[in-house]
Computed example of a mutant assay.
Amino acid sequence: MNLLIAIDGSEAALHACRLVAGYAGARPTVRITLLNVQRPPLRLSAQPGVEQSVLEGALREQGNRHLEDARALLPSGLREVASVVRIGPPAETILQEVRDGGAAALVMGSGRHGPLGGYAMGSVALRVAPAAPCPVVIVRPGARLPAERGKTLRVTAPVDGSQESVDAVRRLAGCAGLLGPMHVDLVHFHAGLPLAAAILPPHDDVLQAWSGLETDAALRLPAQILSEAGIAHAEHRLTGAADVEIAAFARRQTADLIAMGTRGAGAMHHLLLGSVALRTAQVSEVPVALMR
């Protein structure tokens, strides 16, 4: 299994590396690639200056220093570790590396200090997560890491009835060989009835929401997928706003990971991802796996 870790020298990226370093599963089957992407040098003038090759050499040297720091965190039990420095636009270059290397998962930090302070959620990770053909695990600096990665894992999986959330659960089940034994908490958040809906004559959609049919429908197929995969799970029906409650629910359940779907890679993807998944990744106390 190929794991790609994006390393940019930030504490968030190093913490992402610590997540992989603690993997206790089938280590001989895991191949790790540490990737550093340097932005191309910016030419402000057409006048002769430092040669392009010299600039690129300096960038590669800096990238290799970042990779050395990351590599030092990995234990010897993870034997196959490659280090790669690329020069190019970060998001596009990371995605190309994912495709070329057939990565089973991409792990990256969620630094929130702007484009010069790591792969900020608002820039690179936001563009990578919806477009990546593999799960993207986002790790905040200081996030609580699972104690036995690859041995036991408690996962919070929000579902909302959309095809994206069903696909996320299906992909999570497909990662069982990498993640090891799991207990998955499927959770559906019901927003509750606004005042107008409560006092006006009910429509079909209001009746479905009020009766719980909407929640039952959202949970049915994900639960079936996990049952067929032999993965232990529980169903939770809660009232509240998903964008503020997912991380809190995961904390109450002492979850090791949150796994949730993303929606596409078009011009509007940043709005769709940002509505729930991005906010969850920004506030979660544990790593968040975004799955398309």
Score class of each variant (00 low, 15 high):
58 A>W: 14
59 L>N: 06
60 R>C: 09
60 R>E: 12
61 E>A: 15
61 E>W: 08
61 E>Q: 15
61 E>G: 10
62 Q>R: 15
62 Q>E: 13
62 Q>D: 12
62 Q>S: 07
63 G>K: 06
63 G>E: 08
65 R>E: 12
66 H>M: 03
68 E>N: 09
70 A>D: 06
71 R>L: 03
73 L>D: 13
73 L>I: 10
73 L>R: 12
73 L>G: 10
74 L>G: 06
74 L>D: 05
77 G>C: 14
78 L>G: 09
79 R>S: 14
80 E>S: 14
82 A>C: 00
82 A>Q: 09
83 S>V: 07
83 S>F: 04
84 V>R: 08
85 V>N: 08
85 V>M: 12
86 R>H: 05
87 I>N: 15
87 I>E: 13
88 G>M: 08
88 G>P: 13
90 P>G: 04
90 P>M: 04
90 P>F: 04
92 E>I: 00
93 T>Q: 03
93 T>A: 01
93 T>C: 00
94 I>H: 01
94 I>R: 01
96 Q>K: 02
98 V>G: 00
99 R>N: 02
99 R>C: 02
99 R>E: 12
100 D>T: 08
100 D>G: 03
100 D>V: 01
102 G>Y: 07
102 G>D: 05
104 A>G: 02
104 A>H: 03
105 A>D: 02
105 A>S: 05
107 V>L: 09
107 V>C: 03
108 M>T: 08
109 G>E: 11
109 G>K: 11
109 G>L: 12
110 S>Y: 07
111 G>K: 14
111 G>R: 15
112 R>D: 07
112 R>H: 04
112 R>T: 11
112 R>Q: 11
113 H>M: 09
113 H>W: 06
113 H>S: 13
113 H>K: 15
114 G>R: 00
115 P>Y: 04
115 P>S: 05
116 L>V: 09
116 L>S: 08
117 G>T: 09
118 G>Y: 09
118 G>T: 09
119 Y>P: 02
120 A>V: 02
122 G>V: 06
122 G>E: 10
123 S>L: 07
123 S>P: 01
124 V>L: 03
126 L>H: 11
126 L>S: 14
126 L>C: 11
127 R>P: 05
127 R>Q: 14
128 V>Y: 12
129 A>R: 11
130 P>K: 13
130 P>Y: 11
130 P>C: 13
130 P>Q: 13
130 P>R: 12
132 A>T: 14
132 A>G: 13
132 A>L: 13
133 P>Q: 13
134 C>W: 05
134 C>D: 05
135 P>Y: 06
135 P>Q: 11
137 V>Q: 06
